[in-house]
């Protein structure tokens, strides 16, 4: 059972709006950089970067960040797969916008902040997420949100990017009780 939350055209508009908000909030756009959290944040970071380039007239660098080594539940579950971390620009002094698809407990973001700290010292870190589904377990909030979506714990938000072989649609899945 699944409900469509964002269909492709709405998804594209949502991303364009987020890019405008990021540009507006950061007048020193030359210092901007996007860092997509593996795996769901990578495609969104790429889309935001393309949209920002259209708005700002200059490219905005994109990095990839894997947070598996920084998770707080290692040892309580099977070891997670590692994915590449690729940040080819210096983080020091930058305004870094961390990007993820779904904001849930906040634990991934906590891990991402630690991972980022080990890679450099950005001047400022902001958070952009496509969907904020609530249920935070840590004092973390997003600066840019595509869609706020109250959910129950039995639901799952499923984002399928065309970059990953999907159909650019965000759906809500009901998990079996």
């Amino acid at each position: 059972m699944s409900d469509v939350l964002l269909e492709p055209r709405v998804l594209q508009r949502t991303i364009a709006r987020m890019a405008h908000e990021i540009a507006e909030r950061n007048p020193q756009s030359g210092d901007l950089a996007l860092v997509g959290i593996q795996k769901g944040g990578v495609a969104l970071a790429g889309r935001l970067s393309a949209a920002l380039e259209r708005i700002l007239g200059h490219p905005v660098p994109v990095g990839l960040l894997d947070v598996a080594m920084y998770r707080d539940d290692l040892g309580q579950r099977a070891a997670p797969a590692l994915m590449p971390t690729e940040i080819s620009f210096p983080l020091d002094g930058r305004i870094v916008v961390l990007v993820d698809d779904v904001l849930f407990s906040g634990r991934t973001i906590r891990a991402a902040l630690d991972a980022l700290t080990d890679l450099g010292r950005p001047r400022r870190v902001q958070l952009a997420v496509l969907v904020d589904r609530g249920h935070r377990e840590l004092p973390i909030r997003a600066d840019f949100v595509g869609k706020n979506l109250p959910t129950s714990l039995r639901q799952r938000v499923d984002v399928r990017w065309t970059e990953d072989g999907g159909d650019d649609t965000v759906r809500m899945l009901e998990m079996p009780a």
Binding site: M69, L74, G75, Q76, R77, A78, A79, P80
Partner: peptide, 9 residues
Amino acid sequence: LFLLNGGRQ
């Protein structure tokens, strides 16, 4: 070490 550390009670 990382892989062996994973696991459940």
